[in-house]
Design a protein around this nucleic acid. Sequence first.
DNA 1: CCAAATCTGATGTACGTAAATCAAAATCTA
DNA 2: TAGATTTTGATTTACGTACATCAGATTTGG
Lengths: 341, 341
Amino acid sequence: MRPTVHDIAAAAGVSLATVDRVLNQRPGVRHVTREKVEKAIREIGYVRDVAAANLAKGRTYPLVFILPASDNSFMHGLNDEVRAAVARSPVERTDIRTLEVPAFDPTALVRVLDELGKERPSGIALVATDAPEVRDAVDRLVQDGIPVVTLVSDLTGSQRHHYAGVDNIAAGRTAARLLGRFLGGATGEIAVLAGSMLVRDHRERLEGFASVMAAEFPLLSILPVIEGRDDPEMAHMLVADALSKKSGIIGVYSLGAGNRGLIRALKEKAVDRSLTVIAHELTTHTRAALLDGTIDAILNQDAGHEVRSAIRVLKAKADGLAVIEAQERIRLDIFLKDNLP
Amino acid sequence: MRPTVHDIAAAAGVSLATVDRVLNQRPGVRHVTREKVEKAIREIGYVRDVAAANLAKGRTYPLVFILPASDNSFMHGLNDEVRAAVARSPVERTDIRTLEVPAFDPTALVRVLDELGKERPSGIALVATDAPEVRDAVDRLVQDGIPVVTLVSDLTGSQRHHYAGVDNIAAGRTAARLLGRFLGGATGEIAVLAGSMLVRDHRERLEGFASVMAAEFPLLSILPVIEGRDDPEMAHMLVADALSKKSGIIGVYSLGAGNRGLIRALKEKAVDRSLTVIAHELTTHTRAALLDGTIDAILNQDAGHEVRSAIRVLKAKADGLAVIEAQERIRLDIFLKDNLP
DNA sequence: CCAAATCTGATGTACGTAAATCAAAATCTA
DNA sequence: TAGATTTTGATTTACGTACATCAGATTTGG
């Protein structure tokens, strides 16, 4: 049987009340007594029954998700997953609130973060815009003892407790190798479509992509990055233009969102050119394009996993508990037309 | 505030005791009263607080994992993950026991399953040997109300509640497409190394592999399958032999275990031949081979995820609760040298 | 050594549910 | 309608922890 507070009391030769004072760091315990109790805790291997503790406390975990107000499929999917988590709230004892902030706007994000500092929720998950002032705001929260995890996009040099997202450098490298291998030993140009170089995940993907390309596929040259602002219309225009002008393009790497526009451009301008195309994020549009052969591979991050992981980590940090590291690692999913879920 | 049993009692106009009788399907409640209570439960949207219920019951979940006594890295890894779950037992209220049975031995497996039927654990997870008598034994357990999940390898036509493993047909198809694409438009022969055609996962991988190869890569022909019994020594001998005799081999698909032997054979016989190689299961050996270029891609199933998923599902089934489907889907991981964890 | 301050023990209630007991009420049977 | 039977209510204890209160013990300062 698992040891309880009574066992600690017996082992340490003190009363239940004293054990409670030590466990919940309440005042009024002499130093030596405290040590005696802590020793007993270690020796009998006591671990607090979190379920019982939460029951007694009537505890819930007020959590806040800060998401960018972006109108693309990926962010919509992320939003859906947060809503699904809200639906599970009663069972998981969470109390989740979602805040929308303008995308790519550090100032707005900082303002929201600073306000949350006063409110002191049990935990905060945010899709970070990678700017020094955001990093400082997050670090203030962390210093204040509020658990913070970054979601999807990380925050350079910050003290955030955890990052629930994929390794984007690895994603870029993987895309490069897949593209390089799929193209056999061909010579030609590669077009790269990004959202914005202001977000860290896109920068990192590009960095990984370029480094593997340079090192291992010297016959393929990367054209200047097209920035489509994750917007389908803009992406369509820019990609169509590039395809018209550059006849040497034999491959495309789309590392951001807005793939709806990319796919349309490909169908209009390149049906006959048999391009090899790799894109990020599995959505209804990219899925259809993968199945009909317009896209050759999709790299994906599972938004549901990211949200669930963020919640688990925030709850664990709020209770000062350990997490199962391997469970919280967000994988880079690679989908070909054969292994779609 | 979330509704409690007291709220049901008030809403239905009955006593707490009656509510308890209905909730825990105890006898002694008239049909009309039962209906009245059930209606109230639905109307106020009551959901049992599982944590509180488990606390009151002092409940633990006795679970049994049945694993084959195979001496390969994958099964060792699976074993490690079960042990890790045992270490978490106090927190998760599980009480996990592992049983080893001879591999590929339906009779032994049936004997063990039948005995567990008497013992009535809260749930059973097994790596199934795909045979009718095993299926029948599992179905008896299910009929008896014992939750059963298959792990890694599924059981054809059985009533098991869940399968915690990858879609092996999709895995084979994916391997075929990767291999076909990596080989560009080359012409040649593909060697396939399997463990045994007696286990369903290997059969399915081959099936998926062969179908995509035939349909989409007609220039590549599949050689007769080499069965290495998941044994490194045997695999080494057979593969080395094949490489010596067949000079037309340009690709290898290893769909089972025993990759240690395969890798040794490749290094001895094929350093100069630049074969394209795809293997299953990420182990220290395959990881090293991927990094040094001997292997081009590894398809993997995450044993840790499989074990944790099996436990979650068994617990949920034991309590009659729903699971988060997406969370329990075991993905096919594709590793290139760039996205290794 | 006494009073004041500090520390410790004993005890009770609460969280939401399970499970048991016993009494009372309702229903059924003859 | 009496008596047996079934159904329902009321109440209590328990699970492991949190938290509060008050009394008693020990330590500290002067």
